[in-house]
Design a binder for these strands. Sequence first.
DNA 1: TACGGAAAGATGTATTTACAAAACCATATT
DNA 2: AATATGGTTTTGTAAATACATCTTTCCGTA
Lengths: 361, 361
Amino acid sequence: MEEYKYLAIVEWGKDYIAKEHLQPNDRFLSEKELCEIHGVSRQTVRQALKCLENENVISRVRGSGTYVKSVAAQVSEQPKRVGVISTYFSDYIFPQIVTGIERVLNDAGIVMQLSTTHNQVYEEAQALRTMIANGVQGLIVEPSKSALPNPNMELYREIRDQHIPLVFFNAKYPWADFPLVAMDDEAAGEVVTNYLFDCGHQRISGIFALDDIQGHKRYGGFMKSCIAHNVRTAEKDVLWFATAEKSYIFKYARTKLLEMLVNSTAVVCYNDELAVNLLRFCRENDIKVPGDVSVVGIDDSKFSTLCDVPLTTVHHPHRVLGERVARKLIEQMNTPDDAGEDVIFRPELIVRDSVKSFDRR
Amino acid sequence: MEEYKYLAIVEWGKDYIAKEHLQPNDRFLSEKELCEIHGVSRQTVRQALKCLENENVISRVRGSGTYVKSVAAQVSEQPKRVGVISTYFSDYIFPQIVTGIERVLNDAGIVMQLSTTHNQVYEEAQALRTMIANGVQGLIVEPSKSALPNPNMELYREIRDQHIPLVFFNAKYPWADFPLVAMDDEAAGEVVTNYLFDCGHQRISGIFALDDIQGHKRYGGFMKSCIAHNVRTAEKDVLWFATAEKSYIFKYARTKLLEMLVNSTAVVCYNDELAVNLLRFCRENDIKVPGDVSVVGIDDSKFSTLCDVPLTTVHHPHRVLGERVARKLIEQMNTPDDAGEDVIFRPELIVRDSVKSFDRR
DNA sequence: TACGGAAAGATGTATTTACAAAACCATATT
DNA sequence: AATATGGTTTTGTAAATACATCTTTCCGTA
């Protein structure tokens, strides 16, 4: 028994409150009484009381006495908090991902602190700083503009120094050494493009996000498939866009887009959101899908089934991914200083109605 | 000057770290050195250091020394945290509401802690308890099963006792005296029903949620309109359902539903989600909307425009409501003990294609 | 009955002393 | 060169004492 006296008094005090059924705002024993009960000095009692005060079990009022605080505070100690930082959470596939995260964290009795960056690195910095200052026990982050140089390296280094567990999802910064949970974006780009070739398409163009590692990887898969099928893609077969301008490209790149659509029989879209917008663009310009041109998306979002031509796309594990991210973080929290390996989901093609097939086998 | 010595040392220590440009993990002065510098006893120095440790400015290692902690912790004090408890957040109109809340809180530098109850009072209790123990400075709550007796009265009383500001949205418990921000549900029910009468409908039925104050109020508006138009609604013209069974009623109440649809020319639905499901039910049973039967919803959710027959519905301010709730809470946090008045949004009819008009004026 | 003030009792601040336990460092040993 | 060892430094625990400051209570007076 090498326990300290003041810690013994802390435990005794908690038991006492429970045993005597003391309610919030009930009077607790005075320092003098505690001294006599335990036969210790007042300093020792005061140290014990300070602990109980920090744990929110009692509150002390100078000149008046010591009082019991909330019941809730007594029973459960402070639950863990985890920060979740994503680019968005109300649109597209994000609600499902965040639901998955929330579910697992909730089951583990962990509180989720949510913040969104709108894909702005400055907002990401703000969110990270707030979370750190707030004392979160872990972080789940979807990087903003992951393909561009990022001014937040310092912050991630500090997170590393402070041994705060962190898991990325959807994408990771190449220089930040934290585990990632994501879909295999390159394979996804490859799978859809392969499918188009299988359907007999030869002239295939693509539209990809520029500022996003996912965009680069999906483009990589697209390229890989083209090369494997001995098709050379020219610069003009690919349209790059910045995520912030995703809604505007159909205006300012109208000419190039129309040219692309005329010169190809199929288009690989960075994601479903873009694909749905492309469908509308085609409708407005009297281009039949999949009659005149075939369209494929990636992510299997809700909109891919709700739009007028159900989209052929690649399944994104949405909610399962969210659950896996959260579990990964909990693993990291339980085994600190363990590097942790990436979790990459295999893509799975979902065939719907937006691709025309030239073959009849 | 009646300042205490230890507080003076606390301030001096902060200045010292700033002036000497001490970095995280740099060594701070030892207790002995501080004693000599300030000419005080070691206990006094220790009390000062304890304060700095609580404020996360330094950390102490027995046998080694005192060290400076993160810069982030020094600069900005701990930001405020607010708990947001809603029934869902990934479906229906909730993403927009939560986005509105998040936006305002974020602008105010407040961190949002999110928890969902899935409309289960037990999960609500769990969430509330966690939030309180977590020391949130405010709460935004959407009640679960607001029309049924609720076992969480004690918790809300405790929140009141601890003077934690709280704002309800969408609905409030009649016995809990906190401000509410919501749409005028009764008026919403009245507005759609009035519109159906205006279009020449006479036999109107309704489907409403049973366990939810919003359901009761919307039904109230429906009734009010019927009475004003001298139409007596019979028991069999109204179908009640429990929120948990919203997807199943089309199976187990199939007969009653079909009967209702045959006997009436229009149906008032509790909300858009239900209305969309009813549209599908009609399609599956070869009932034309709005040819055979007209359907109206409430809430103006995204699905009301995406489904095959765009829904006539009542606009719910979604995001604006979310923003208003958050601002209301911030008001409450700034002026404690101010009762705070409810904010009720007027409903606004959105006419689309799901109602047939018999009049030709 | 209402008010004021003194007394009692509570927690807060400060000093001094002593020993305990962990970390650190330089020297000596293997 | 690696390992032990012991002394030094540093923070942690504990006690005894004194006074400060605030609250509550109670009693006497107007």
